[in-house]
Design a protein around this nucleic acid. Structure first.
Length: 655
DNA sequence: ATAGCCTTGAGA
DNA sequence: TCTCAAGGCTAT
């Protein structure tokens, strides 16, 4: 926590208990009147939501269910208004079935946390502004015309903070209240299509009264999301995902991938892969990647936890088994199943979280002394840390971020041994099915690495294992995407135009993607990459972001909320301090019409980074939905028993 | 049906 | 006692 950060006097800048009330309603953009049904909304949307739920209204949209909802047009389409209420996160369960007046509900702590966090962030922001003012005007007198420093950010002055005509603000993150306060421009990278709060509240405690309504509204959502031609609505991949795009013929297909100069595997293996199927399509035991032992060479637990990927009979489980075999069959993996009986027999997450820490020998390939340009570690860290980041340069980095970096560095040294396994994967986008099996296999491995990273991470390892599982299940997809975005941001932009830099080092040209919905998801992802590029986010900021996503005290069922919240606050403060102290933001103004939230100065970087999270979550949710649909298409057998499948079906297996 | 204002009452 | 997020009332 930055010294003195919280000492900023709040009354002077309007950070009293009423802060947030200058915000705009995330549904319609009207003035916020308070917390209602889970978040800050205006009085009218509060009433509308109440009436709708209490009276079990069923609305119809006479248009395409994409009506714009703002203050002047909110009455036009109740369907779309209610849809938006749900999207931004208004909680059905906060409407009382018995209509009892007064008192408080279970959301009290949530509201308080939101307030506290908002207050912290605003103060942090204020500190940024003061520092900036001092830099510009040493006398600190830059407040003519009655304009306070805060006005620049639009954080506390509702007149300054403008919400454009389409204030699409998906409730995609525990910091939604912060977003509504920080947001100066909408984050309308496509339309959010899901009733998102399901993710955060998988075990919806709503009464039967609400259940009925919820289901009906959910069905409306569902029908919405399956509207095939709806260009801006949801991710519609089913049922035509496996259909070939007739417009793309074999003759016109481009090469499936390019060599990534940062990928040591391709660098060293000349051109053996071409268009041929990857070796991973061979049976799991037939070939083992360099540096990865087979099960029978590991020392011995003949009874790896059942349900782990190495015992999976699913196609993806088989493809993914090698890496996990290596891990889970280590001697002490008779895991601490006593920690959580309900999951001990089936959880790959638990198995991974509790697997034995691998010892590192001096002969390992991760010998970091070898920086001659050929070692995997060199390339890997180069890719991970960025070319401009000096690991020893911790000057001016808040202590907590330094610790995160050290923790992360330690893990990178462990992780690198698995990288070659991942790098051997080859995705052939020109395949009719988009090579979905291989893609899932890759994602499964990334899930493993992410859980492995988390369990060795600062603070996270101190959390109870059942809470670890819950946090991971809530955050995995976003962390995975943040990782991918980060890696891609470390590549020169010109080397990956229109390409996704896959975790295996491949450059996946999105023009090869045949399914329109998948392509749209890819484009949205690349938009995120571009946004982050413009932010010029740095390694400590990337790490902080991952931690903020992971440490969400509002995850359903988590019991160490205060501890988690404490970490979240520490990281928030540290990130704010770092972005304030490191004037690393591009001063070039945004020239792209599609770009949003690009900071015009370094003071806004902190807010911009946080404001990218809804977009990340949108991409994550769409990817999740896609995977679920594909799995369903395979009768649930595609991902059965593998880590990816367990993550995807987290809602069911959480209890 | 909407939306601004009022009343209520558990919890801080 | 005060706060504030519920539900209620009612002019539009």
């Amino acid at each position: 926590m930055g010294p003195g950060v919280l000492d900023v006097p709040s009354p002077d800048v309007g950070l009293d208990v009423k802060f947030g009330f200058n915000d705009l309603c995330p549904v319609c953009g009207d003035k916020v009147s308070g917390f209602h049904y889970g978040l800050l909304t205006c009085e009218s949307c509060k009433g509308f939501f109440k009436r709708t739920v209490q009276n079990k209204k069923n609305y119809q949209c006479i248009d395409k269910q994409q009506c714009q909802i703002d203050k002047t047009q909110r009455k036009r389409c109740a369907f779309c208004r209610f849809k938006k209420c749900l999207q931004v996160g208004m909680k059905l369960e906060a409407v009382r079935e018995n209509r009892v007046r007064g008192g408080r509900n279970k959301f009290g702590p949530l509201y308080r946390r939101s307030r506290a966090l908002r207050q912290q962030i605003m103060r942090q922001h204020f500190v940024s502004m003061v520092k900036a003012q001092q830099n510009i005007m040493p006398n600190g007198n830059g407040m003519d015309n009655g304009q306070s420093p805060i006005d620049i950010t639009g954080v506390t002055n509702g007149n300054v903070m403008q919400v454009k005509s389409e204030p699409e603000q998906p409730n995609l993150h525990p910091f939604q209240h912060i977003y509504s306060s920080l947001q100066q421009t909408p984050t309308n990278v496509g339309h959010p299509s899901h009733v998102h709060h399901q993710n955060h509240h998988p075990h919806h405690p709503s009464s039967t009264h609400h259940q009925h309504h919820y289901q009906s509204s959910h069905q409306q959502q569902k029908s919405l999301s399956t509207t095939a031609s709806s260009p801006s609505s949801s991710f519609n991949v089913y049922p035509d995902f496996f259909n070939t795009n007739p417009n793309v013929t074999n003759n016109t297909r481009m090469p499936s991938f390019q060599l990534n100069p940062f990928n040591p595997y391709y660098k060293n293996s000349s051109t053996t892969y071409g268009h041929s199927p990857p070796s991973l399509l061979l049976p799991p035991t037939s070939s083992l990647p360099t540096g990865v032992s087979s099960t029978n060479t590991s020392t011995s637990n003949s009874n790896p936890p059942s349900g782990s990927s190495n015992s999976s009979s699913s196609p993806v489980g088989q493809l993914s088994s090698k890496l996990l075999d290596y891990q889970i069959s280590s001697p002490t993996t008779t895991v601490t199943n006593t920690n959580n009986n309900s999951t001990s027999n089936t959880s790959s997450i638990l198995s991974t979280l509790t697997m034995q820490q691998q010892s590192i020998t001096s002969n390992d390939s991760m010998n970091t002394d070898n920086h001659n340009g050929t070692s995997s570690v060199y390339f890997y860290n180069h890719q991970y840390l960025g070319q401009n980041y000096e690991m020893n340069d911790t000057n001016g980095i808040p202590e907590i971020l330094t610790k995160l970096i050290e923790s992360d560095q330690a893990y990178r040294c462990t992780e690198v041994r698995y990288i070659e396994d991942i790098q051997q994967i080859h995705i052939d986008l020109t395949r009719e099915d988009g090579d979905i099996l291989v893609v899932c296999s890759l994602l499964d491995k990334l899930c493993f690495l992410m859980v492995d990273w988390a369990r060795q991470s600062l603070y996270f390892k101190d959390i109870q294992i059942d809470n670890q599982i819950k946090l991971l299940k809530a955050a995995w997809i976003e962390i995975l995407i943040i990782d991918l975005i980060w890696k891609q941001c470390q590549q020169p932009k010109e080397t990956c135009v229109n390409c996704i830099v896959s975790a295996n080092g491949q450059l996946l040209n999105i023009n090869l993607i045949q399914n329109p919905a998948v392509k749209k998801l890819a484009e949205r992802y690349l938009q995120c990459v571009n946004d982050f590029r413009q932010l010029q986010w740095q390694y400590p900021e990337y790490l902080a972001l991952k931690y903020l996503v992971l440490f969400d005290p509002d995850v359903q069922g988590v019991t160490e909320s205060s501890l988690i919240e404490e970490v979240q606050e520490k990281i928030t403060n540290a990130l704010g301090e770092y972005t304030t102290d490191h004037n690393n933001t591009s001063s070039t103004s945004n020239t792209s019409s599609t770009q949003q939230q690009v900071p015009t100065n370094e003071q806004e970087k902190f807010a911009c980074i946080l404001l990218k999270l809804p977009d990340v979550r949108l991409v994550g949710n769409d990817l999740k939905k896609l995977l679920q649909l594909i799995d369903r298409k395979h009768d649930g057998k595609l991902l059965d028993g593998c880590l990816l499948g367990e993550m995807l079906n987290g809602l069911q297996s959480n209890n």
